[in-house]
Simulated assay, not measured.
Amino acid sequence: RAERLWRAGAAFVDVLPRPPRPTTLPPGTIWRDAPHDSIPHARWLPNTGFGELAPQTEAYFRHGLSAATGGDPDKPVVLFCQRNCWMSWNAAKRALALGYRHVHWYPDGTDGWGEAGLPFARAEPAGP
């Protein structure tokens, strides 16, 4: 079903958290984020699936969801992470609370997508 929605042009939103820079790195150490592959054309909104969000992160989620859907609360939107990652469930509930009417939760996330032999694309966090 997720593949059908993807092919039909639904908005896909990846909420996988972005690992923070380790606090134990010595000053001046260069830190590079690990690459993140996601479902092609998905908007990556890292750290927006936690149960409680800081106001700034909640605003980032609202803005990112609006950008992903073109501001259309009737556009189908699919929220995902990885299998057994409940952050996408939290984000889906948050999207419903924001008035989006066609919200889908993809519980198998990128794990299920890959197992189905579907493509991936390198993702970068969406801007503010």
Results as ranks from 00 to 15, higher is better:
A2I: 02
E3A: 15
E3D: 15
E3N: 15
R4P: 11
R4L: 14
R4M: 13
R4Q: 13
R4H: 12
L5S: 04
W6C: 08
A8V: 09
A8G: 13
G9V: 11
G9I: 10
A10D: 10
A10W: 03
A11D: 06
A11T: 04
V13Y: 05
V13E: 02
V13Q: 01
V15L: 03
L16H: 09
P17C: 09
P20T: 10
P20A: 14
P22H: 02
P22A: 08
T23P: 09
L25Q: 06
L25K: 10
P26E: 14
G28Y: 08
G28I: 14
T29K: 12
I30G: 07
W31S: 05
R32W: 07
A34Q: 12
D37W: 14
D37P: 00
S38G: 11
S38A: 12
I39D: 02
H41L: 14
A42Q: 10
A42N: 11
W44T: 13
N47V: 02
N47F: 01
T48N: 06
T48M: 04
G51I: 08
L53Q: 12
L53A: 02
P55T: 05
P55W: 10
Q56P: 01
Q56C: 00
F61I: 10
F61S: 01
R62I: 00
R62P: 01
H63Y: 10
H63N: 08
G64D: 01
G64H: 01
G64F: 00
L65A: 03
A67I: 01
A68I: 06
G70A: 11
G70F: 13
G71D: 06
P73Q: 03
D74M: 14
D74P: 00
K75G: 05
V77T: 04
V77F: 01
V78Y: 02
F80S: 00
F80E: 00
C81K: 08
R83L: 14
R83I: 10
C85Q: 07
C85M: 09
C85K: 03
W86T: 06
W86D: 08
M87A: 14
N90E: 10
N90P: 06
N90D: 12
N90K: 10
A92V: 06
A92Y: 00
R94Y: 09
L96Q: 13
L96G: 14
A97D: 12
L98M: 05
Y100E: 07
Y100P: 06
H104D: 05
Y106Q: 02
Y106R: 01
Y106F: 08
P107M: 01
P107T: 04
D108Y: 03
D108V: 04
D108T: 09
G109R: 04
D111N: 12
D111Q: 07
G112K: 02
W113C: 02
W113R: 05
W113Q: 11
W113Y: 09
G114S: 06
G114A: 15
E115W: 07
E115S: 03
A116V: 01
G117E: 13
G117S: 15
L118M: 10
L118I: 04
L118E: 15
L118G: 11
A121P: 13
A123Y: 12
P128A: 11
